[in-house]
């Protein structure tokens, strides 16, 4: 097998809270161009794990490589600049700003990285992103006045606007209606054409519909990893997670 460098590689990654090992000695590889889902019961350490990847938390020990580069101690904002975008589990759009401004923030940062922010280019890019998620009509509404589903969409739009190489979605469908979830699945598929997607998700229907690979976490460790059908067949997973009546 050819030695393809994984987009993300963690070695012995560990983070404790008090005495509790939220992430315990995790070795993890994320292949480029795939949709990869992390599942597991509440408190399994999923959010802590992706927080370590995005730089919101720093690990106690272990290393993280992004495209072969060591980013273990890189500050969060730099990680975003090299291409790791994180969308929040709890919707945290800027409620008092317009939808336009919410998307303009990531766009202008990206433009700034390449030099000056030209108002015309900014305007165009913002509407490209809004069109992609179907929210151009709402550009001048206050983000806080949107429906919950639209706020989740806006959250993803902000991630998209960064044009990341890796987009981390932390429970994006939580609280969405079935109809909204279908739209969402389509959107993530489309995003995955340009970017690698790492998805934390409780809804197994969404996971099975989207994921190329699945990692199961439990008690801060990786319990199993494989294709959706392998995970479905895995007895340990059945017991720890799928058998728990969640699905």
């Amino acid at each position: 097998m050819a030695a393809v460098i994984p987009l993300i590689q963690t070695r012995a990654l560990t983070r404790q809270f008090g005495g509790l090992k939220a992430v315990d000695n995790v070795d993890f590889n994320l292949e480029s161009g795939k949709i990869h889902a992390i599942i597991g019961p509440n408190g399994a350490g999923k959010t802590t794990f992706v927080s370590l990847l995005s730089g919101r938390l720093l690990p106690d020990s272990g290393t993280i490589l992004f495209d072969g580069q060591d980013i273990t101690t890189m500050p969060a904002h730099k990680r975003v600049q090299v291409g790791i975008a994180y969308t929040f589990q709890i919707t945290s759009v800027f409620a008092n700003l317009s939808v336009y401004d919410n998307v303009a923030l990531p766009v202008q940062r990206r433009l700034l990285q390449r030099g000056r922010v030209d108002p015309g280019a900014l305007h165009q890019s913002v509407f490209e992103v809004l069109d992609r998620v179907g929210m151009a009509d709402h550009a001048h509404s206050k983000a806080g006045s949107l429906s919950y589903g639209h706020q989740r969409l806006l959250e993803v739009a902000m991630g998209l606007a960064l044009q990341p190489r890796l987009l981390i979605l932390d429970e994006p469908t939580q609280g969405l209606s079935d109809g909204e979830i279908d739209t969402f699945i389509e959107l993530v598929r489309e995003i995955a054409r340009d970017a690698t997607v790492l998805l934390i998700e409780h809804n197994m229907q969404v996971v099975m519909a989207l994921a190329d690979r699945i990692t199961v976490m439990n008690n801060g460790k990786i319990l199993a990893e494989g294709t959706p059908s392998e995970i479905r067949a895995n007895a340990a997973v059945q017991e720890a997670y799928l058998g728990g009546g969640d699905v």
């Binding site: 975003v80 975008a85 994180y86 945290s92 700003l97």
Partner: peptide, 14 residues
């Protein structure tokens, strides 16, 4: 203004 509204979110936009 975005920093005033939510500093952490601004950081996570790079």
């Amino acid at each position: 203004v975005a920093i005033r509204e939510n500093e952490e979110r601004v950081r996570m936009l790079g």
